[in-house]
């Protein structure tokens, strides 16, 4: 029985390949001159200029300046001098910074898993032939349009007041204490709120992925006698693997930047149990520790670049969408 299913999957794979070839064949806007060289209309370059200028001024220049200052003792204004790698050495031995990396990565891993499992299952449900499909999809996407800080403050109220009230009303002791006040569990509240906020975007990508699977593949699987679980595992999952990878990596990179949800929920507390990397970096601006936190930001940037390179490698391979 296993062979026919594999064939179905393989044929779907070749469909994807064909679509890709079709796409790469002809670049938009490219024309061939008499000798067959590709000649691009200069207007396309002009389209890029405004963005390029803005990007350079607003992102590249500040980033380069920031990296430059990470080798100084600049505090945001006034005189400064070069201090070499002092900031970097100090950052690597700073328990507060190390703890923020530990927290942020742990948080990002847990959140990315939770978000993808829930979003995938929801997407499978929402692409099946169920009633109220359009209405349900709209409902599930609502969290996406609310600002993170607003969501965080609403949940802050729920966690501090409503949930404990419910807990003590039902006589459940562990529920009657605010999760935000518990240094060991406060991080879970941030996972929950971040997941609630970011599931819709992930869900949409999965829905797009699931809809791109041609019906014939399922027909073939049906004919081969595959059940629902088998279809999900051996047909659906391999065919959306590209979407899974994209969602995982984009999500992970996003969660590493976690900031506003924490500000709205715990502000890094209780104690220092939920201080993320972004929050630590930001103290550099308010605390006159500009250069030092620029070094921290540079380290963080290098990590983000490494993850991006990894993402490119993987998505260029078998998992291209």
């Amino acid at each position: 029985m296993s062979t026919p299913v594999t064939t179905a999957a393989a044929s779907a794979g070749s469909l994807v390949d064909e679509a890709e070839h079709g796409r790469t064949d002809h670049l938009a806007g490219a024309r061939h001159d008499r000798r067959g060289r590709v000649r691009v209309d200069p207007i396309y370059y002009w389209f890029l200029v405004p963005t390029l200028v803005l990007f350079t001024l607003a992102i590249t220049v500040p980033a380069v300046l920031g990296i430059f200052y990470s080798f100084t003792n600049f505090i945001g204004f006034g005189d400064w001098e070069f201090v070499g790698f002092t900031n970097y050495v100090a950052a690597f031995s700073d328990p507060a910074i190390l703890a923020s990396y530990g927290f942020t990565f742990g948080f990002a891993i847990v959140t990315v898993l939770l978000v993808n499992v829930i979003a995938f299952l929801l997407a499978v449900g929402l692409t099946a032939k169920i009633k109220l499909k359009a209405g349900l999809r709209a409902v599930f996407v609502i969290p996406m349009v609310i600002s993170g800080i607003v969501i965080a403050y609403v949940f802050n109220f729920l966690f501090s007041n409503s949930v404990p009230a419910l807990g003590s009303g039902l006589g459940i002791p562990w529920l009657s204490e605010s999760i935000l006040a518990n240094p060991d569990l406060a991080w879970l509240s941030i996972v929950i709120v971040t997941a609630w906020q970011s599931i819709p975007a992930t869900l949409l990508i999965y829905i797009a992925g699931l809809l791109s699977i041609p019906g014939e593949v399922y027909e073939a699987a049906d004919i081969d006698g595959a059940g629902a679980v088998r279809r999900l595992w051996s047909v659906t999952l391999p065919l959306v693997s590209g979407y899974v990878v994209i969602n995982m990596i984009l999500g992970f990179k996003n969660y590493l930047n976690v900031y506003d949800v924490i500000v709205g929920l715990t502000n890094g507390g209780p104690g220092t149990s939920t201080r993320s990397i972004a929050m630590t970096i930001f103290t550099g601006f308010t605390g006159g520790d500009y250069a030092y936190q620029m070094a921290n930001a540079t380290i963080f940037f290098i990590i983000a670049v490494a993850i991006s390179v990894l993402q490119l490698r993987i998505t260029r391979g078998k998992a291209a969408i």
Partner: peptide
Amino acid sequence: IPLTIPIDNYIQAMVTGADIPAT
């Protein structure tokens, strides 16, 4: 105290049960 040291957070930890000498 220099703002780089998250003193408020440390104090919050101590008052909610963290080990005081260690903090």
